[in-house]
Simulated scan of single mutants.
Amino acid sequence: MKRKEVLKMELNRLQQFFQDVKVCRLPLNPALVVQGIEADIGDDLRQDMLVLQIIRVIDNIWLQEGLDMQMIIYRCLSTGKGQGLVQMVPDATTLAKIHRESGLIGPLKENTIKKWFRHHHRLESSYQEAIRNFFHSCAGWCVVTFILGVCDRHNDNIMLTNAGHMFHIDFGRFLGHAQTFGSIRRLVYIVIHTINRL
């Protein structure tokens, strides 16, 4: 109970801080100015920060070789056990939400993601660019998540931006540390399944 009280007190202090100063520089990226925070409780960001740093190195190698995989690698800063900062990616939503919005059988429909892209891109050129962004970023994330053995992939851990960039979140399990269902390991299949549905 004491932990919750301390958390509530600190969140109130942060809210008061933003009421007083209005804006401040973001520690994750001082070029950005923030007006407030959205608290999420329960994640240990140390592992996420490590995985994202490794992915950033891989993406830099690709870019040096002239291979732009359209990767969105958000910033993450752990400031201690159970605390830290995560950059919000604007205009992004989870695959789970996209599927829910398309109805009860949304995940089973052949063209759910295609319709979602069409909704955000009325012009054919814009739509085609979003599709290219999706394929490039999807390929890039498939490679890095495979190399790092990222597990626990499901539609709530995979996000899409309106511009078509796909990216992963929540790296609580990697290096092959997979969850099991009975004696069966959960495997990554969602991303490949999603590609087939386009």
Score class of each variant (00 low, 15 high):
131 I>K: 15
125 S>L: 08
36 G>V: 11
141 W>M: 06
150 V>S: 04
99 H>R: 04
66 G>E: 00
123 L>Q: 15
120 H>M: 08
44 D>Y: 07
77 L>H: 03
50 L>F: 10
174 F>S: 09
85 L>H: 09
6 V>N: 10
169 I>T: 10
84 G>W: 08
130 A>K: 02
193 H>N: 14
120 H>K: 11
27 P>E: 06
180 T>Y: 13
183 S>H: 14
53 Q>E: 14
6 V>W: 12
184 I>K: 11
184 I>Q: 12
192 I>F: 11
102 S>Y: 11
196 N>A: 09
79 T>I: 08
153 R>L: 15
59 D>M: 01
144 V>E: 03
76 C>E: 04
16 Q>D: 14
72 I>S: 01
123 L>R: 13
181 F>M: 05
111 N>A: 10
18 F>M: 14
181 F>A: 06
116 W>Y: 15
156 D>G: 15
26 L>Q: 05
107 P>T: 05
34 V>L: 12
141 W>A: 01
127 Y>W: 09
117 F>K: 04
152 D>V: 04
96 A>S: 09
186 R>D: 07
111 N>T: 13
117 F>A: 02
146 F>I: 02
133 N>M: 04
99 H>F: 14
134 F>Q: 06
122 R>E: 15
25 R>N: 12
186 R>F: 12
167 F>H: 02
14 L>V: 14
16 Q>V: 02
176 G>K: 09
92 A>C: 15
61 I>S: 04
198 L>H: 09
164 G>W: 01
66 G>T: 00
152 D>E: 13
60 N>C: 00
53 Q>N: 15
63 L>W: 00
114 K>T: 09
78 S>C: 11
167 F>R: 02
138 C>T: 15
142 C>M: 09
6 V>C: 11
23 V>D: 00
105 I>C: 08
85 L>N: 03
136 H>R: 04
195 I>K: 06
22 K>V: 13
149 G>Q: 03
178 A>W: 09
190 I>K: 06
31 A>I: 03
186 R>C: 13
77 L>G: 06
139 A>V: 07
51 V>E: 05
72 I>K: 06
6 V>A: 13
